[in-house]
């Protein structure tokens, strides 16, 4: 969240120094809402908020078509497929019939579709990297930032699905800016 606030400050938005889910800015009519990342597209779609700062990965996962106004060069990460070091899976086609754990089922499906691969999708919300060692999955599809978590869990990257960063989105920005 800190880089987002930093970005707002750089835009000259004067944030009050309090903690609340919504903050009215001093000296401007801007109100900042702090909501779950995955809820941001809904707020924008329903015209509850005018602008959103969100990870592009969330937009892609929700198949959200809202226009991106600016790429913000923070929150950089990638969605990758990773497998245990000792795994016999050595290319995307080898994933056929395997169990893939992920919190990104729709991005994963899209990827499988593009590659003509069929597989079982084990949907879990967190600690995805643990699942191969627990025999819950044969591969994972998860966000990689530094790569340390993957390494710590004995996983190597098989394929990069997409790169992501924080982006600024809006629905009717042309009208708003008028």
């Amino acid at each position: 969240m800190e880089p987002s606030l930093e970005y707002l400050r750089r835009l000259g938005i004067d944030l009050p120094d309090e903690k609340a889910l919504s903050l009215k800015c001093k000296r401007s009519d801007v109100e900042i809402l702090f909501v779950r990342c995955s809820d941001i597209p809904t707020y924008i779609e329903q015209n509850v908020a005018d602008f959103g700062i969100i990870g592009e990965n969330v937009l892609i996962e929700q198949n959200c078509k809202l226009p991106i106004l600016e790429r913000l060069s923070f929150g950089e990460c990638s969605l990758v497929i990773a497998v245990p070091y000792e795994s016999g899976i050595s290319c995307v086609q080898d994933l056929e019939g395997e169990r893939i754990a992920t919190s990104y089922p729709s991005s994963l499906k899209q990827f499988l579709r593009e590659n003509g691969v069929n597989a079982a999708i084990v949907q879990i919300e967190g600690s995805v990297e643990l699942s191969p060692s627990l025999n819950l999955a044969d591969a994972v599809c998860d966000i990689r930032q530094s790569g340390n978590t993957l390494k710590e869990n004995g996983l190597r990257v098989l394929e990069n699905i997409f790169d992501s960063e924080a982006v600024l989105i809006s629905k009717n920005y042309e009208k708003i800016l008028l």
Binding site: R99, K109, A119, A120
Partner: peptide, 12 residues
């Protein structure tokens, strides 16, 4: 895990 495997199987 059989049932969850089959019901979450993604087919092109």
């Amino acid at each position: 895990q059989l049932i969850s495997y089959l019901s979450s199987y993604y087919e092109n």
